[in-house]
Design a protein around this nucleic acid. Structure first.
Lengths: 202, 202
DNA sequence: TCCGTTGGATAGTTTCGCTCTCCAATATTG
DNA sequence: CAATATTGGAGAGCGAAACTATCCAACGGA
């Protein structure tokens, strides 16, 4: 297909498609002549993925690029890969320090792994600081209920990876981390709404 | 305290504090003279809240303003208030339509309330579309595991509201919606990490 | 008294994510 | 086959957002 068709099918303006190509996020189409290039389904898929990450997740293009790079050239170490994927997601913290007391304490209580090099640690620390600043409860009791729920979810999410090759597992893990998050949050918001509506009806 | 002290204690540059005041997000200090104004603890709290929402949550200032307005002047209807709070959070979708088939179908399966005027519905719809675009599983089975976890969490979150006055409940609900989300996501990421590390050690 | 600081206003800066304009080459249409 | 439209590609331009810097007259503290 040509660029105008790619644009129509993806809903992304031609000028923006050109921009993504220039930025190296989308491969060039196969040049048929000076003024003709052929784009395939893989271009469409890639474009939709960029839209999903940039529009739905609201990630800055620099982070989208990071995620695409992980998928394009998977590293050997799955834990390092997860770390990089998490680093591409908000909240963005410059992890300059090497200890995060709030997160360390919480994680001790919850029986998770405290590794200050894993980006989620500074992220948790920041999130707990924000709770504190707003005067919300960040006690072990409260954290445990979130942690229990997420451990349950995480266990079920990792299960299918047992039967995957690395080539399948990396995109699954990277995109799964990024794209199930809005679903989880939307379902929490809907659960609140549902409980309020139900409660009123009583 | 004076503005320089407010700035130091909050970690926000003086110029930025002035900017927030100009934008109406932070009240002016009480003017003692032409060149002296007194700021109190409530200014510090408000400033920390703005930082939490803008920096940690990464919300645009326009949305931060919306959330502050909800807290400052609570509406009567708690469901409408929740709706507005959710509307201030990403993913931002222009809910132009009045039906969201993906979300409707999913919600039917999950036994939640389908109300297309509640912003989380278009948000869920967008999130499901993104999953689809990336080729990830959005089957009822998968959604149910997230939904079950979130219903459990939501039930426990609403419990303390029973004993609150409206004046307490509104900030709790609005800020709780916004500020526990990064904690939840960080704990999911940490659970993945923990399971991977554990798994490797075996 | 005098130097540094303050509150307040206005203008400037940086970053991001496009979007517009151009161009020559090539398709397409009449 | 001539006229018109479209394409790929490159560069510059643009508008919003979130600060940041500059100014200035009026203090206040030593």
């Amino acid at each position: 297909m040509k660029i105008s068709e790619l644009s129509e099918r993806s809903g992304v303006p031609v000028a923006t498609v050109k921009f993504y190509i220039r930025e190296g996020m989308l491969p060039r189409g196969e040049a048929l002549s000076t003024t003709r290039a052929e784009y395939g389904e893989e271009h469409l898929t890639r474009l939709r993925l960029i839209s999903a990450l940039a529009d739905v997740r609201g990630l800055p293009l620099s982070r989208v690029r990071d995620i695409l790079a992980l998928i394009d050239a998977p590293e050997d170490d799955p834990i390092a890969t997860l770390g990089r994927a998490v680093g591409a997601l908000p909240p963005y913290v410059e992890s300059d320090r090497d200890d995060y007391p709030r997160a360390r304490e919480a994680i001790g209580e919850l029986g998770l792994t405290y590794d200050p090099d894993f980006t989620a640690i500074p992220q948790l620390d920041e999130a707990l600081r924000a709770l504190e600043a707003a005067g919300l409860d960040a006690s072990p009791t409260v954290l445990r209920r979130y942690s229990d729920a997420m451990r349950q979810v995480a266990t079920e999410e990792l299960a299918p990876m047992a039967g995957m090759s690395r080539a399948e597992a990396v995109p699954y893990a990277v995109l799964g981390t990024a794209l199930y998050e809005p679903v989880i949050l939307a379902l929490r918001r809907l659960a609140h709404h549902h409980l309020l509506v139900e409660g009123n009806g009583r």
